[in-house]
Every structure is written in structure tokens, then in C-alpha cells.
């Protein structure tokens, strides 16, 4: 095929760069991917910085006016935008700062100095630019990233699963963590990670976000049956799911 390979650039905002690290760690799959695309900007694996690209992969949340302007500028050059990881896709853990007012946040973090005068509430990148593809997770699940990139290259949509992590967890034949008296967000979290945490005996923390149509009332019953408190559950949502609109359903159901 003589067609020019699409150019892909990775940029990061407020985040830990762990999702880019997951991409860098793909190994053979990453090498395969580079047969189909030219990576022109990816500071985790290369020092050159290309400024011409077709596909923009953005990691991290938007947390300042400067972030907003920079994202708009780099997005203007791209044909396709991919949100990489929870921070970019839903706001991720950065949403935690929104629990307090901007003034309070700054006071706690910086004391009396204010090095980030243009700070704004943390938000996902789709609050600023239109996103074509989402790779959820904290961090992302490598095989899903490969699948999404294939969709990007073939110009077809990628559908994030609307079913819960339990689907993958049962197919992997894990012993249900509820059976072991542990609290797991699997039943209400979007699948797509191949039940990564439960496979390793660790309860799901909901990093991919809540499913679109959660049964909040039933979830409440279940948690109560397992002796958990409503506060305890809502607390679990704080880490990743606070900003999602589906969360409101739980607030309504749980507090009634």
C-alpha cells in the first residue's frame, strides 16, 4: 500500500502520563501499530516533536485557562481526536479537586502563594473540544487502545461497552468479590478492561465510569444486603465517578 501513513501525535495535560506509559508498554503491538501509522510526537518514547498530525491522542484533564487554549490550538490541526484515559475521558481523579472551591483548593495545595492564577475546575477534554474516540480507564487497558486505533484508521466508530465489568469478570470465571464480602464497583462500571482488577483479586474501583443505564435502586438493595452503608458507596464513587451525570441517579435513589 502506497498510501501515506496517518501521523499520530500524543499530548498530555494534567495527569500522571501513566496511560501513555501503557501505550509505550504495548511492546509488539506498538511495533505493529507503527507499521500502520507514523508517531510524530510521543515524549515517552521519542525526543523529536512533530507538529503536523492527523490523529491527536490527548491524555489528561483540563485544569487551567492555559490548558484550554493549548488544547484548542493543538486540536485545530487534527482530523480525529482520541481521549486517552480517565483524566481526558471523564476528568478522572482530577475531578477530586472540584470537591472544594478554587480558592480553598489553592490554599490547601499552595498555601499563600498562587502559582496557577488561571486555574479552572478540572474537566474532561470534551468540555473543550469535540472528541471522536474514548479510551476509558485509569490506566487504559492496552488491548482496548489497539482496538480503538484500528477503528480510527478504518474510519469506523468504536463503541464503548454499555454493559458492566461483571460480564467480563464472569466470563473469566473469577469468584465474585461480593461472595467474599468485598465491595466491588463491577456491576455498575463500564466493561472494556477485561475485568483487570478482579482478575487479580482486587475489587473494581470504577475507573472507566458508570454504565449508561445503572439500576441504582437494585444496587442499593444489594449493598445493604452485604452490610455496606449508603455513605460508604457514595464515597467509593468519589474517586472516578463524581462528575458523571449517571451519578445523579444514585444520589437521588440512595438518599431517598
Amino acid at each position: 500500500m502506497s498510501k501515506a501513513k496517518p501521523k499520530v501525535a500524543f499530548f498530555e495535560f494534567t495527569d500522571c502520563e501513566g496511560c501513555q506509559l501503557q501505550v509505550a508498554n504495548l511492546g509488539a503491538d506498538l511495533l505493529e501499530l507503527t507499521k500502520a501509522v507514523d508517531i510524530v510526537n510521543f515524549r515517552e518514547i521519542m525526543s523529536e516533536e512533530g507538529q503536523e498530525y492527523d490523529v491527536l491522542v490527548v491524555e489528561g484533564s483540563i485544569a487551567s485557562k492555559h490548558d484550554e487554549e493549548r488544547l484548542k490550538a493543538i486540536a485545530a490541526k487534527a482530523k480525529v481526536i482520541v481521549a486517552l484515559g480517565a483524566c481526558a475521558a471523564t476528568g478522572g481523579v482530577n475531578n477530586l479537586k472540584n470537591l472544594k472551591s478554587l480558592e480553598e483548593q489553592k490554599k490547601i495545595v499552595y498555601g499563600d502563594v498562587d502559582p496557577v492564577k488561571d486555574a479552572v475546575a478540572a474537566k474532561p477534554i470534551d468540555a473543550v473540544v469535540k472528541v471522536d474516540y474514548y479510551v476509558h480507564g485509569c490506566p487504559i487497558h492496552g488491548p482496548e487502545f489497539v482496538k480503538v486505533m484500528q477503528c480510527v484508521l478504518m474510519g469506523k466508530p468504536y463503541k464503548v461497552p454499555t454493559y458492566p465489568v461483571c460480564v467480563e469478570c464472569r466470563q473469566n470465571e473469577n469468584v465474585c468479590l461480593y461472595d467474599k464480602g468485598q465491595f466491588c464497583l463491577g456491576p455498575i462500571t463500564r466493561a472494556g478492561c477485561n475485568s483487570w482488577l478482579p482478575n487479580n483479586g482486587v475489587p473494581c474501583v470504577g475507573c472507566r465510569g458508570l454504565i449508561d443505564n445503572p439500576a441504582a435502586n437494585a444496587q442499593k438493595d444489594i449493598l445493604e444486603k452485604y452490610g455496606l452503608t449508603v455513605e460508604g458507596i457514595l464515597d467509593k464513587f468519589t474517586l472516578y465517578c463524581n462528575a458523571q451525570k449517571e451519578r445523579a441517579k444514585y444520589d437521588k435513589e440512595f438518599k431517598s
Binding site: V167, R170, P187, I211, A218
Partner: peptide, 12 residues
């Protein structure tokens, strides 16, 4: 009303 939609019943 009680079903949380986890799909476990159909999976197993």
C-alpha cells in the same frame, strides 16, 4: 426491580 443488570445469571 431487584435486578441490577449484572448479567451473571445468563453468563453462567
Amino acid at each position: 426491580r431487584r435486578c441490577v443488570g449484572c448479567t451473571n445469571c445468563t453468563a453462567v
